[in-house]
């Protein structure tokens, strides 16, 4: 368990180092959103793990609650920037509004203080919206008559990371409140493994050249890839 926790922190650091090594190719809004998300995620994990803010009266569960909202916001914006179909975008915006309504309702329902460590409904809604958004991204990508392979795009690996993490942890968060304390500990491994995978996929996305710097001309493609 602790071994996996260490690996999670190591993957965080590796991802940050990779971002800094390939800083030149990551000077774009999309990479910065993901990098911000990783930094925020790392900070939040440290704060909740060590209960640092408890001393000043801020509950770790509240931090996790805020993290769910900020995480959704950052990843939603990241994916939203890639989508083209306006009707789907409108639909996703409506779902995002629903998410924030649920978040606000839970916030007032908990009287600003007694938050659960895992807000099942909020995380489930967030997971469903982000998985739908990722699927839409993938289908829009294959409909695009672009000559580039989908896995040569950084956004693809971010989407893979998002999909693996949120689909892998979907049932864990959904059933979290029904689990016994021992089961919670043993099943938390799923979250860590998915987190490690997500960080690895995000690292890959930082290594790849951004979409706008890739070969789009067919002749160049032949010269570079066939020969």
């Amino acid at each position: 368990m602790f071994f996996l926790l260490d690996i999670t922190y190591i993957t965080y650091i590796i991802t940050i180092i990779i971002f800094l090594i390939f800083l030149n190719r990551n000077r774009n809004t999309n990479s910065i959103i993901i990098f911000s998300y990783i930094l925020y995620s790392l900070t939040n994990d440290i704060l909740t793990e060590k209960h640092i803010l408890s001393k000043i009266g801020i509950d770790s569960n509240f931090l996790l609650y805020v993290f769910t909202i900020i995480e959704f916001l950052l990843l939603f914006i990241y994916l939203f920037l890639f989508l083209k179909e306006s009707r789907i975008k409108k639909f996703l915006l409506i779902t995002a509004v629903i998410f924030f309504v649920i978040a606000a309702y839970n916030f007032f329902e908990n009287n600003f203080k007694s938050f659960k460590s895992v807000d099942t409904i909020l995380i489930a809604v967030s997971s469903i919206i982000l998985i739908i958004e990722s699927i839409v991204y993938l289908f829009e990508s294959i409909q695009n008559p672009d000559i580039d392979f989908i896995y040569s795009k950084p956004s693809f690996w971010v989407v893979v990371g998002i999909m693996i993490y949120f689909s892998g942890t979907f049932f864990l968060f959904l059933q979290y409140e029904n689990l016994s304390d021992s089961d919670k500990k043993s099943f938390w491994i799923i979250n860590m493994i998915c987190f490690i995978l997500k960080n690895i996929f995000f690292s890959i996305s930082f290594i790849l050249k951004p979409e706008n710097q890739q070969i789009s001309n067919v002749d160049d493609y032949y010269l570079n890839k066939i020969e």
Binding site: I142, I150, V160, I164, S167
Partner: peptide, 27 residues
């Protein structure tokens, strides 16, 4: 609960990986 969680997670991951592999091969 454990059973649902275990098979649910496996199922979700299988679906996700299947979808990603399908997208890659189709493209």
């Amino acid at each position: 609960v454990s059973l649902v969680l275990f098979f649910g997670t496996i199922g979700m991951l299988a679906l996700t990986i299947g979808l990603i592999v399908f997208i890659i091969f189709h493209q």
